[in-house]
Each structure stands twice: as C-alpha cells, then as structure tokens.
C-alpha cells in the first residue's frame, strides 16, 4: 500500500507542476460547455462531460508516456506493475475529481430542471473511464503524437456518431450520452441502466488491460534468475 501511495503522491506532484497543462485541462471542458450553451442546454452538458473525458484522457496519455522511461527502473527497485498502474490511476482519478467539481457546481447553478445526481454520476464514470483509457493508449502507442491523434478521432466520433446506433457503443464514452439523456430529458431508467453497464464495463476492462499490459511489459525476464545473497 505504501508503494502505491508513494507512486500516487509523486504522480500528483508531477501533474500539479505542469501548470499550463492544468489550466488547459480546466478550460477545455468549459469551451465545450459554452459552445452549445446558447442554443441547447442539454447538449452543452453532454459536451462538457465529453470535454472532461477528453482532457483527462489526454493527461493520462501524457502521464503514461512520461512514466515509461522510469518504470523499468522502479520495477527493478522493488515496485510491481500493479503498484505503478494503481498509483498513477489514483493520482489521475484525484485530478479528474478535482476538475469535475467546479463543473458540477456550474451545472448545478446554471441549469434547471436537470437530474443533478445523474450529472454527477456521468462525471464520476467519465473520470473513472478516462484515466485508464489514456493510460491504455499510451501503452499501445508509445509516441505521444499518435496517441493524441487516436484520442482526437475517438472523441470526434463520439460527437458525430448516432448514439442510437449499435456501433457507437464501442466508443468508451457512449455511456455519457445515455445517462445524459436520462439526466436532461427525464427519460425512463433504461437509459441510466444501459449507461451504467456500459461505463462500468469499460472502466473494468480498460483498467484490467492497463494492469495486464504493465505486468507483461515489466515482467521479470526468463533469462534472469535471482537468489538470496549468501
């Protein structure tokens, strides 16, 4: 537990020192929100949540890429793959929750006739999914530019594809449209349930993928055999 907490603490310190990145992370969802606030309040909530997911995924992508150089060394000095992944995820989830709070308050006071609990739920699941999604991208695409372009494609598709279509369900933030509809349009709980199942599935699968990837990448190689000092 100490090892995971230390990784989380150091990851948080690293993120906190990238001040310009933090400002951009904070402003990105706001621009999404303001882009549709004038003509479609409900859509502005959905866009805000997508912006939040995009911002946190990007932060996770860059955090994952930056950590690649030091992780083998940390593994060698006693950390296991799951210490590193869970510590980093804990830091990113903390950042995501901190970013979400002012936006929840914004919606709480700027929008009326909305299910606020459902909005908080979208934000929570977005944070939980976005962090492992960004880390998974950084694991699959070690170069940051490629990862950023894939992220851009995913978010672009998320905005353009018809959420009612089956194929849109393979996108990681599809749940936000479903729960968003439940929150804004006061539809039946079927939307909420589908969104919850989708979000939970993606959160579990992505987190498992990232842990598995880290365990394989940082495994003890078969040619190396340790014994206790005599």
């Amino acid at each position: 537990m100490t090892k995971t907490c230390t990784v989380a603490e150091m990851a948080l310190r690293e993120i906190a020192r990238r001040r310009s990145v933090l400002v951009m992370l904070l402003l990105l969802p706001l621009t999404f929100y303001l882009s549709r606030r004038g003509d479609h309040l409900g859509q502005s909530i959905r866009f805000l949540c997508l912006g939040l997911g995009w911002a946190l995924s990007t932060a996770a992508l860059f955090a994952g890429s930056a950590a690649r150089a030091i992780e083998p060394r940390l593994r060698l000095c006693g950390y296991r793959g799951h210490h590193l992944v869970l510590g980093r995820l804990a830091a990113l989830w903390t950042v995501g929750a901190t970013l979400s709070l002012p936006y929840f308050l914004l919606i709480r006071f700027d929008q009326h006739d909305v299910r606020y609990g459902a909005v908080a739920l979208i934000m929570a699941i977005t944070v939980v999914v976005a962090a492992p999604f960004g880390l998974a991208l950084s694991a699959a695409l070690p170069r940051e530019l490629e990862g950023t372009l894939v992220l851009l494609t995913v978010i672009g598709l998320q905005m353009m594809m018809d959420p009612a279509g089956t194929s849109s369900r393979i996108l990681p933030f599809w749940f936000s449209r479903e729960i968003g509809t439940y929150a804004v349009d006061h539809t039946d709980s079927g939307y909420l349930e589908r969104g919850l199942i989708h979000g939970a599935t993606f959160a579990v699968v992505l987190t498992a993928l990232v842990v598995a990837n880290s365990s394989i990448r940082l495994r003890q190689r078969s040619h190396l055999q340790f014994s206790s000092p005599r």
């Binding site: 930056a66 060698l76 190689r221 040619h223 014994s227 005599r230």
Partner: peptide, 28 residues
C-alpha cells in the same frame, strides 16, 4: 533484466541497482 537476450542466462545473487546512461529521472 530490462532487455531479453536471444540466448543465455544471467544469475544474480542478491539485489540489483541500475544506473542508466540517461533518462532515468522524472523531470518534474
């Protein structure tokens, strides 16, 4: 143990400390 050989074995009796040529630190 940071790279695999095509053949061969490495036996270590104890713990290992490794200092890479560069990029072994966190910039921030």
């Amino acid at each position: 143990g940071l790279a695999s050989p095509d053949r061969g074995k490495v036996y270590v009796n104890g713990t290992v400390g490794y200092c890479p040529q560069d990029s072994g630190t966190c910039g921030f």
